[in-house]
Simulated assay, not measured.
Amino acid sequence: MPDISTYVLCSEAQLRALLDVHYGGHLLGQFWGGATASEAARRLGEPAPRVAYHVGRLRALGLLVPDDRPGRGQALRPVADRFVVPAAMRPALGTHTARPLLAALSEAFLAAHTLTPDDPQDLTLLDLRAEAGEVDLGPVAPEAARLMVRVARLQPSAYDRVMRAAWDALAREQQAEAGTRGARLFTFSLMGFPGSLLPLSDPQRHQGE
């Protein structure tokens, strides 16, 4: 298994830059494995001058660094594979930094439905089956926006395992599909948290059941 490099954020400016829904972590990811600013712009379908401006901001914050592999003109790469918010900076991960990202994701999700065909299409939002197998998302177009929400009672170690497995599966698919004809940009947001959506739920209430 390849080594995973980790970068611990050291300023709120870096945190805000990574949480920028348009040109933060999304843009940084285009440089994984090394790329030039113009290559990143082509991958995103964005104007090169605009991308170059935000690339310069990520470089100034130390989040993008030169890629020293030969044969690449002014190639850059992320300073690490994984970015971590240290405990001392956790208070900065509040509504003033995270809310804009979550709001933008919600707006983009709602807007994506307006791009689907006019024909009515069913979409499964919840599947309560416990058995393993393919999830039936209903007769929708493969590229349609999808939303699945599930509250599950798990051991903390199982929760960690599920989150890691979901992220790993996405990474494997992305590597397999990279450069293939017909590949398009899709946005995935993997979110999990202790407790349920019920405001009166007590996360300690059912311990030991």
Rank of each mutant, 00 (worst) to 15 (best):
A13P: 00
F109S: 05
R90G: 09
W32N: 10
P47Y: 12
L115K: 11
A169R: 15
R77I: 01
Q14R: 04
V151I: 11
Q14V: 02
A37N: 01
G192R: 02
Q121P: 03
M148H: 14
A48F: 04
V135H: 01
Q174S: 11
I4P: 01
A108I: 03
L58I: 06
R153L: 07
L28G: 02
G24I: 02
V51G: 00
V162E: 00
P70D: 08
D68Y: 13
Y23E: 06
A13Q: 11
L125I: 12
D3L: 15
L147F: 09
L58K: 03
A171S: 10
L190M: 04
R181A: 13
I4H: 05
R150S: 12
G45H: 03
G195S: 07
G195Q: 11
Q204L: 15
P78W: 01
L137I: 08
L154K: 05
E143A: 09
V151M: 09
A145M: 06
L76H: 03
G56M: 10
A171V: 09
D3S: 12
D81A: 11
A92W: 05
A40V: 05
P203D: 08
V51H: 00
L28D: 00
Q30V: 09
A80W: 00
L18G: 00
H113K: 07
V85N: 02
E209D: 13
V65G: 04
G138P: 02
E46P: 01
D81L: 06
